[in-house]
């Protein structure tokens, strides 16, 4: 149990979580990913315990989405391995609510918002959602303020509307682990803190674990209980205040030529 020592401080900070000596929700060990000649991830390791809220930050092209895909089992790393709930990546889809960064779906596919949300419930495309499934989908859409979108064709939704539908799909199945790749992208200011509000309330109600890729360092500082600073390799993993220091960020972001380190203390309203 080499990870026991690292989880102790988490138990202190997150009071709602029982003393942790169990399998971490996310276990990433020595992960290395190459695309051709380019080393995208290099020796990435970290563990995330139940009930944590992880923010993954790093510059564009840092490998954040790649890491998410490794965790989901979509991408097999050349080195190391990733496990969710102690199982191989890709083995426990029913426990994961995933919001992809890029909405790569076929825009000519005849689909409505409610159908996409129902895929979150039955993990296949619904020919005809049952009454119960429709009710659950409505409830999930209502949670993200998108109840009006129910029967709208997906291809005609705006970027932010689409983001909400994907979010509804992810939480509809009541996952124990919510994994979001830049969930705040494209949603308006109000929707953004509705999003964090939703995630925090969901977490409080179910004790779920959340991991979110974000470019919003202020949001990471304010909402996350753990932060992973990534740029090909891990530049910092720990408590937000420890990891989001100017020096760490300078080092991580400096590698791709970023000179300006955003240091916002923007007030994020909490409802």
């Amino acid at each position: 149990m080499s990870r026991a020592a690292r989880t102790d401080e988490g138990a202190v900070r997150v009071a709602t979580v029982a003393p942790q000596r169990r399998v971490p929700v996310v276990h990433v060990h020595n992960v290395g990913v190459r695309f051709g000649d380019a080393q995208i991830l290099d020796d990435v390791s970290f563990d995330l315990d139940e009930g944590q809220f992880l923010a993954i930050v790093g510059p564009n092209g840092a490998g954040k989405s790649t890491l998410v895909k490794v965790a989901l089992g979509l991408l097999r790393p050349q080195r190391g391995h990733a496990a969710l709930f102690g199982r191989d990546a890709g083995d426990v889809p029913e426990r994961i609510g995933y919001v992809p960064q890029l909405k790569t779906f076929d825009r000519t596919f005849p689909a409505t918002a409610v159908e996409l949300v129902v895929t979150g419930l039955r993990r296949s495309w619904p020919a005809r959602p049952s009454r119960r499934e429709r009710e659950q989908a409505h409830a999930a859409l209502a949670q993200v303020g998108a109840e009006a979108l129910v029967d709208r064709p997906l291809a005609r939704l705006s970027g932010g509307e689409l983001q909400r539908v994907y979010l509804a799909r992810a939480v509809a199945r009541e996952p124990a682990f919510v994994l979001l790749d830049e969930p705040a992208t494209g949603v308006d200011y109000l929707a953004e803190h509705d999003l964090y509000d939703l995630l925090e309330r969901y977490q409080a109600r179910t004790g779920a674990t959340v991991a979110m890729v974000t470019h919003d360092l202020a949001a990471a500082r304010y909402h996350a209980s753990r932060v992973l600073v990534l740029n090909r390799r891990v530049f910092g993993f720990g408590l937000p205040d420890d990891v989001l220091c100017d020096a760490c960020l300078q080092e991580a972001y400096g590698h791709v030529g970023h000179t300006h380190v955003p240091h916002t203390h923007r007030h994020v309203p909490r409802r």
Partner: peptide, 16 residues
Amino acid sequence: GRLAYATFDDELARTD
């Protein structure tokens, strides 16, 4: 159901 899901979005279907 699975064919339609994979046709809609191959990667999303794989995560499920």
